[in-house]
Design a binder for these strands. Structure first.
Length: 331
DNA sequence: AAGAAGCGCAACCGCAGCAAG
DNA sequence: CCTTGCTGCGGTTGCGCTTCT
């Protein structure tokens, strides 16, 4: 509508994020919580547009993000969910708590698409469901296009029902759905310190690499005085010091410990516990409440390889399941 | 060993939806 | 009801790394 892109402004930095910028962003969000992205660049002094900040947070710095190889389990989920939902990566990501939509999208585009194409090439149109993706993989373009909008509509209805059910749920303690949990990023919620544990790990890892790769970066990081001072503040708080002898950034303790001190983490904050804590907070309803119903059903279907392998499950069945069985259980 | 090609990932861009004024 | 601004999402791009020739 004629409105210039937010990133077109002069002085707005583009390209890869530096560790300093990451730290500034994380420390700001730690203090204020995610949301109000518009205010982030001005309040932090970051020379980034709000969009870029949000993206960096959601795709990289956000707590609990798992990087690296996708497991077979995850792969299957993605394939099945893609067949069901189409390219609605955010929705798919909501069922894979530790993966971002961007990650899933990338993985789909770089790995799974090819894989499925190959399988499709081998198995022809009558995909009798072997190997990855099974019957759905298949998801031949034609069959996908055929009645796709109906399926999407049905899925939307299902999701709406699910959301409604959750909204009406008596269990107020864990009201967040997979789908809804995405929303946390734009709602200033009260965070416990532990929520950021995984973020700490991300940054710690990042710093480790950074220290290995660019020992001089602490000297050269002079984007702006505000930025630098924020970074220094963060260093002190995090137990990180500039080594006077070498001018390099070094941690007085482990990076994790440093960040923990800043963020006041529990002393018993092992990797494992922080992950658990995160899961509880970020995807609170997935594992341990009655809200589990839709997901367990879905998972049951997702992992029912035997059924798929024997060609026993079809799209129609899936929709029957999701709209019939699930809805039935919901109401 | 060097150059070319391919691959994977982070980040950008533009559009759509929503809410506030 | 319309306009404006912000946020979220999906598609796409570009760069750096790895593998191949």
């Amino acid at each position: 509508m004629g409105r210039p892109p937010c990133c077109d402004k002069i002085g707005v930095k583009k390209g890869p994020w530096t560790p300093e910028e990451d730290i500034i962003l994380v420390s700001y969000i730690q203090e204020h919580g995610p949301g109000n992205w518009r205010a982030v660049p001005t309040n932090t002094g970051l020379l980034r547009c709000s969009k870029s900040c949000r993206l960096r947070w959601t795709n990289y710095l956000r707590p609990g993000i798992r990087r690296g190889n996708f497991s077979d389990h995850e792969e299957k989920m993605i394939i099945h969910l893609q067949a069901l939902l189409g390219n609605r990566w955010a929705a798919i990501a909501s069922y894979l708590p530790q993966r971002t939509d961007n990650d899933i999208k990338n993985y789909w585009n770089t790995h799974l698409k090819k894989k499925l194409k190959k399988l499709q090439g081998n198995g022809d149109e009558h995909n009798q469901g072997c190997g990855v993706g099974g019957g759905h993989s298949a998801v031949s373009e034609s069959s996908l296009a055929k009645g796709q909008w109906e399926r999407r509509l049905q899925t939307d209805i299902h999701m709406a029902k699910q959301a409604l059910c959750e909204a009406l749920s008596l269990d107020k303690s864990n009201p967040i759905l997979p789908e809804e949990s995405k929303l946390y990023s734009n709602v200033p919620i009260i965070q416990t310190s532990a929520t950021y544990a995984s973020s700490t790990e991300n940054i710690a890892r990042l710093l480790e690499n950074w220290m290995k790769n660019s020992p001089k970066s602490s000297q050269t990081s002079s984007e702006s005085t505000t930025t630098q001072s924020s970074f220094n503040t963060f260093q002190v708080g995090a137990g990180l010091t500039s080594s006077p002898s070498e001018g390099t950034l070094s941690a007085t303790a482990t990076p994790e410990a440093g960040f923990e001190s800043l963020f006041s983490f529990n002393s018993c904050n092992s990797d494992e516990t922080s992950l658990i804590i995160f899961q509880d907070e970020s995807k609170p309803s997935l594992e341990n409440t009655k809200n589990i119903i839709p997901l367990t059903l879905l998972e049951k279907w997702l992992f029912d390889d035997a059924a798929i392998g024997q060609g026993g499950v079809h799209d129609d069945d899936l929709m029957d399941m999701s709209l019939g069985e699930t809805a039935h259980e919901l109401f």
